[in-house]
Design a protein around this nucleic acid. Structure first.
Lengths: 254, 254
DNA sequence: CGAGGACTTGAAAGCATTCAACTGAGGTGG
DNA sequence: CCACCTCAGTTGAATGCTTTCAAGTCCTCG
């Protein structure tokens, strides 16, 4: 198993890395081979990261984009009060631009919530790529539009739902997104988030997240623990969350 | 005053409409004359709207983009529970794309919160414009990046701040944005929002918004009423809101 | 085996919601 | 011109959800 691991994994991983990205931006497999190749060639150095590592930091100068290949990262805004507000979760295949050279300073940090791997992609490379391949431009635009829709749904989540609804909604969303990326096995998927992270993403205290998760478990709807998310009764969970996957629409087909 | 009003206002308004848009996407006046002309020619029929009017509706097929010229509109997500969640406020000069032809259905509505005027701009026209004028593409991209940053700040607002902090933050943001658009007169500006609207944008009940506004008024920090917002003590208001205008940076200079 | 981090539990306090009634301003029709 | 109607804003009391604090358990790793 371990023999030649270094050598063999180098090229195989390059393909795997691209495949993950493609599952996110081109789930229907519509891109031409040349566009796919160009995309693959833009994936630069892949670097592993550890949970709690800061991939880039709020206030820094704009940086390259970061493509998450494995694990979960979060767009985070640190608060003067000491807490961290999670503004978006980045799953494998998702791209976080580093300010696009548009802002003077980055207005949020990128923080790893779990161990994983990420690639840096220079903003200039991305721009060249989009200019040369209109279909890539369209694909990336679509992905960005989805991220926007996701952010808006988070706003709704925070504005109108109870603690239980918020957590249930986040779990629904995570499951559907991971499933679309091919990262779910039946009704289960790996979600190695801390209860504190869930709290930072839902505006709840970690203590209360704990109680809500217990209630959901006792209701036989969903289990989250030991790094795994198991959906026991999706319709009921979706109902408790008032979950309408419309806003994720593009993640599946098109 | 009223003589020839119709005729005279037609051309003058066309210039005014463009000026409002330019203040938003090109505050520094860097665009070339030809780009400005192209932009102006894309502004189609201008239509007045009334408070509470729905400009386009959630679930409909993707539509043209809407440019708000006067008044305040909101991206709204209607809730099964009957309420409305406000996901973004659109001030004069701000553009709301109609789904970009990317989503099958619009995932939110566009609703007028006050009386005003808006122009429809065909998505195809916008795309052609951006293709022909790279500088316009850049300007619109920048505006879109600001909208994203705004959405993320709203998420933070909902996640970490108290009721008072949320309302104070929204008022800070509104004032700074309106000021950047040249719509503030000293420390005052027109903000004809209902307390219910503030509540829908901050995830609070209208009743509680009322109490918070009273507290802010009693503290001598800010007054909101009769359609006007008066900032009495901005430093203190910003402090109560933990307001850091970094995320609005691009609205001012560049 | 010890240490640290994540998770769990209980009790008390606080903040925001809900319900319901009332005030006030603006506009309409008699 | 006034009566009336409506809608936004205001107020009070009661309820309840969520936080905070503090202690304790469980698990993993060194």
């Amino acid at each position: 198993m371990t023999v030649f691991k270094g050598d063999m994994s180098t090229t195989r991983d390059a393909e795997t890395n691209l495949a993950i990205w493609l599952r996110r931006i081109d789930p229907a497999g519509r891109l031409t081979a040349s566009a796919r190749d160009a995309l693959g060639s833009s994936v630069g150095r892949v670097r592993p990261f550890q949970a709690r590592e800061t991939l880039f930091h709020e206030g820094d100068a704009p940086s390259d984009a970061v493509l998450v290949l494995e694990g979960i990262a979060a767009r985070v805004k640190e608060q003067p009060s000491g807490g961290r507000a999670i503004v978006a979760l980045l799953l494998p295949g998702e791209l976080c631009n580093g300010g696009l050279q548009l802002f003077r300073h980055l207005e949020h940090s990128l923080r790893a919530l779990t161990d994983g791997r990420a690639a840096r992609i220079a903003t200039a490379t991305l721009q060249r790529l989009e200019a040369q391949h209109p279909e890539l431009h369209a694909a990336l635009l679509r992905a960005a539009a989805q991220d926007d829709a996701l952010a808006r749904e988070w706003i709704v989540n925070l504005e109108v739902r109870s603690a239980q609804g918020r957590v249930a909604h986040l779990l629904c969303e995570l499951f559907v997104r991971l499933q679309a990326l091919g990262l779910a096995a039946g009704a289960a998927c790996a979600v190695p988030l801390l209860q504190q992270d869930i709290g930072d993403a839902t505006g709840l205290s970690a203590v209360h997240v704990n109680r809500v998760l217990q209630a959901l478990r006792r209701a036989g709807v969903v289990r989250l623990g030991r790094g795994a998310l198991e959906i026991l009764n999706f319709p009921r969970l979706a109902d408790m969350a008032a979950f309408r996957p419309d806003y994720l629409e593009l993640l599946e087909a098109v």
